[in-house]
C-alpha cells in the first residue's frame, strides 16, 4: 500500500504508481463493454434485417481468415513463452519470442488488409457493410495498438536497468494481447462462422 511504503516522495506525479496493473485491468473490463455493444448491435441488426447481405454479395470467404485466426491465437502462446523467458532472465529468448509475437500480429493485420482490399462491399453498403468494417476495423486498431506497445517494451528491454523497478509494462501488454485475441475469437464466430 502506497501509504505505508517508505519510498521518498520524489516527484509528486509519480509518487503513487504502484497500482498500474489494477487500473489497467479495470480499463480492459470497461473496454470490453464497447466490443460487447458492437457485438450485440451486430447480432440485433442481423436478426432483424430484411436483406442482410448487400446485392451481389454471396457471403464471406472464411478459409483465409481462419488461417489468420490461427496465427493470431497462436501468438497468445508465443507471448506467454516470451514472458516465461523474461521471468527466467533469458532476455534474448524473451526478445526473440516477443518479436515473433509482433510478427504474427503484423501478419494478421496484413491478412486483414488483403481481405479488405478484395471485398465487393464498402463501409456504407447497408448494415452488413457497416458492422463488418466497424467490428474488424475497431479490432484491427487494437491489434495495431498491441504491436505498438510491444515495440515500446522491446525498445525498453535494451535500456539498462529498465525492468528493475518491475515489469508491469510487459505484463500489461501481454494481458492486452490476450484480450485482443479473445475478442477476435468472438468476432470470428459472429462474422465468419455465423453466416446463416
Amino acid at each position: 500500500m502506497t501509504t505505508t511504503t517508505p519510498q521518498p516522495l520524489a516527484e509528486h506525479g509519480e509518487a503513487h504508481g504502484g497500482h498500474n496493473m489494477t487500473g489497467f485491468i479495470i480499463f480492459l473490463c470497461s473496454e470490453s463493454v464497447i466490443f460487447l455493444a458492437f457485438f450485440s448491435g451486430y447480432a440485433l441488426l442481423k436478426l432483424s434485417a430484411l436483406n442482410w447481405l448487400p446485392a451481389g454479395v454471396e457471403g464471406l470467404e472464411w478459409r483465409t481468415p481462419l488461417l489468420n485466426t490461427v496465427v493470431l491465437v497462436s501468438s497468445s502462446g508465443t507471448i506467454v513463452l516470451a514472458e516465461h523467458f523474461k521471468a527466467k532472465d533469458k532476455l534474448w529468448l524473451f526478445r526473440g519470442f516477443w518479436l515473433l509475437t509482433m510478427a504474427m500480429g503484423s501478419y494478421f493485420l496484413y491478412g486483414q488488409a488483403v481481405e479488405w482490399g478484395g471485398l465487393q462491399f464498402g463501409f456504407t453498403s447497408g448494415t452488413f457493410g457497416g458492422t463488418f468494417y466497424l467490428l474488424t476495423g475497431f479490432h484491427g486498431l487494437h491489434v495495431a495498438t498491441g504491436i505498438l506497445l510491444m515495440g515500446l517494451m522491446l525498445v525498453k528491454s535494451f535500456l539498462p536497468g529498465n525492468y528493475v523497478g518491475g515489469e508491469q509494462g510487459v505484463q500489461a501488454t501481454s494481458l492486452f494481447w490476450h484480450f485482443v485475441d479473445v475478442i477476435w475469437i468472438v468476432l470470428f464466430l459472429l462474422i465468419y462462422v455465423w453466416q446463416g
Binding site: S32, V33, I34, A37, T124, G126, T127, G130, L134
Partner: peptide, 27 residues
C-alpha cells in the same frame, strides 16, 4: 463504453453515410 460504441456509430452515420440507424439502409 456502451454509449461510446453507440455514439461512434451515430457519428459514422452522420458524417460518412453508414446506415447503422438509417432506416433507408436497413438500419
Amino acid at each position: 463504453p456502451a454509449l461510446t460504441g453507440g455514439a461512434v456509430m451515430l457519428l459514422f452515420d452522420l458524417t460518412v453515410g453508414t446506415s447503422f440507424y438509417r432506416p433507408e439502409g436497413g438500419g
